[in-house]
Design a binder for these strands. Structure first.
Lengths: 219, 219, 219, 219
DNA sequence: GATGAATGAGTGTTCATTCAT
DNA sequence: TATGAATGAACACTCATTCAT
């Protein structure tokens, strides 16, 4: 409405809250983070948070939604392409693995909360929001599942049980969250190289040994 | 003085506490678990816990130690065998993957706490205990690392970067923690079959395509 | 925005907390007082206390500071006067002794905490705050010490060891805390009379026998 | 080895408990001391304490009784002598002041608990025991009161209000508890000299200016 | 005579949440 | 829009006390 003062604070207020929350949830987990922590991380007080989010669990949900949005956006182009199964998987996997490295804060926050859900915890937020999240997550996995299924049917993948294969592949691509610590010197190229190695291992795990393009994703 | 009432309480008191703590930490995470939760899970009061463990973080550490002990014990026989690298890896991996399924409570508690450590959280307990845990974990990984290295040198594995391969393999074997929900009907054979599928995928990821024994470990 | 509702709550919120704390510390001692006691004494809950004071020991420190402030204010006018040593001491002592009777709650709280310090107890609060308190206390004593020294040099006092004399005098002036129970009928005049008797005894203890003004400080 | 082992542990078990309790109560106050502290101080466990004393407050009472016993014993010989009032007071006061220095642990414990009583605290133990203590204390003070009264009647003391004078004198003699820290090099002679200075000041406060024996109690 | 196990009430402290401004 | 005040429930931890041995 005003002049484009957009560059003053690069991000809108609610998103600032999200970023702070993601950083804190990543660092200390959902239960280990107090809203004061989040507020302090923004240099503000709790009022700001409650102005935009009704409760702590709503905030968690927003962080999850945000993270899921990033994840969908990362793989959608490849998913919508008309590549053949192996190549489509490679492209999606590369995008996803790279995304995991680049957006560690949101992704770690997401996985921390996921962990609680999986183990049957009731502390990860209210049930309606949780259901919504599970639906999203399922939808995300299904995009990979589609490709695996297509590749299995076409004989491009050698998969025994599809859900085991799916989780193995995704777990592999996500694994950087558990062992990759971003360094200052890191270039984007470094990150892509790490992602690529994981993708190749995932492809081999899926039995795509007759890998036409072992060197990279740009033939 | 009494009759051998040995079978009254199958487990010693401190171990009962450990079991309850593992179950609770698994379900709600460390930060999300109150000591009252743990006590209630045992049908006792907090006093019992504090009689055996000096603090919540000490209790977490004991749970971790216990879990690590189980993990070492599971893979040690195979590690000490004189099998060739691929077969040794297969045996260790099978034992580990099966162990992850069988001891979910302790393993999930372990991974939840690991997650906090990895993300730089300071809430996972006191530092001295944390260091001790990191050392243990490193020792565990090194057992697999040894085998991968041997296999890489002998040409049995096709590995690019050894630490990426190591983490990919372990992540794959651990992945059941995130998606396998034990059911009542589960037989031990079922579990072993799941484990075996993961092991085969891990082996393929490591480039052990010339798999002598693709069907299982009992030809 | 509103009418000057100034007389609604006579005291500001933090001072209300201080008053309640002083009353409780006086009655049951620092260690024997729970923050619930203090809160109950105000008709509030612990949250209010923690909103203004970061911890129990910080609260104790604030009570001590407040009490010391009262004490300094009581004797400063006389200290800054240009009376001769004996008369200056008499004026300071009278003010102090009267102050001890009038502000029993804060003074008893102060002395209770002092007792722990003196005996080497570690329970009287954190060390940095304790040091600050000791410094204050020392400064207070030094005001009397100055006068004693001047009187000793001028020959107006017959003092053997100055620190023994100082403590004897102060202890005498403080002694009402241990035996004087304020009654409803007490007038201010009664209190001043008690104080005066103590002052005269303290003066005699200091060897100021050639007391020019044995009847009071307003000839 | 089996010779009369009496000297092995110089003190009987119950008295060991008393000593430990006195030391702890002195250091941290009654409320600040846990029975585990006391037990640890003896190198034993709580069982030993409960074997001899029914509760914490009973233990406190025993410590008080013990301290009072020491105090009575210290002044009784002088009290029973047929000295004239001033000399009798001097002898009692010297014994008492010296006693305060020598038995700091018990005396500080006693005074800490006294403080709570005086301020109306309900935490200093059960009421029946408290009454008993107050009676004892009163009896002790009365021994000094007798002498002051006799001296006042005989004209040897110049006392206005007897109870003020009594408390001033006793407070002075007790004051070392608040400022005298025993050092390693301390000789018994040092302690007696400190006591004597206090006694002389107390005598002057009581108006016994015509002091026949200003140098000491052994003419 | 002494101990270790166990308890439950209580203690200092944290924190999500509400509310008035 | 944003904040400081206030609350109450919950939490980690302590401790006097009991009891079986």
């Amino acid at each position: 409405m005003n002049l484009p003062a957009a560059h003053k604070t690069a991000k809108a207020a609610p998103e600032q809250v999200l970023d702070a929350a993601a950083a804190c949830f990543m660092e200390k987990g959902y239960a280990g983070t107090s809203l004061d922590d989040v507020a302090r991380h923004m240099g503000a007080t709790k009022g700001r948070i409650y102005h935009y989010f009704g409760s702590k669990s709503e905030l968690l949900h927003a962080v999850r939604k945000h993270a899921m949005g990033i994840n969908f956006a990362a793989i959608r182009p490849a998913y919508n392409s008309d590549l053949a199964p192996v190549e489509k998987f490679r492209a999606m996997a590369q995008a996803h693995a790279y995304n995991m490295i680049k957006e560690q804060a949101y992704q770690k926050a997401l996985f921390g909360s996921l962990h609680l859900h999986i183990t049957g915890g009731k502390n990860a937020g209210n049930d309606a929001l949780m259901q919504d999240f599970i639906t999203d997550r399922r939808a995300f996995e299904d995009m990979f599942r589609d490709v695996l299924q297509a590749g299995q049917e076409s004989g491009d993948f050698d998969i025994k049980t599809i859900s085991y294969a799916l989780h193995t592949a995704l777990t592999t691509l996500n694994s950087t969250l558990y062992w990759y610590t971003p360094r200052d010197g890191d270039t984007d190229k470094d990150r892509r190289a790490v992602a690529q190695e994981l993708v190749e291992m995932a492809l081999r795990a899926l039995g795509a040994c007759h890998n036409q393009n072992p060197k990279g994703n740009t033939p």
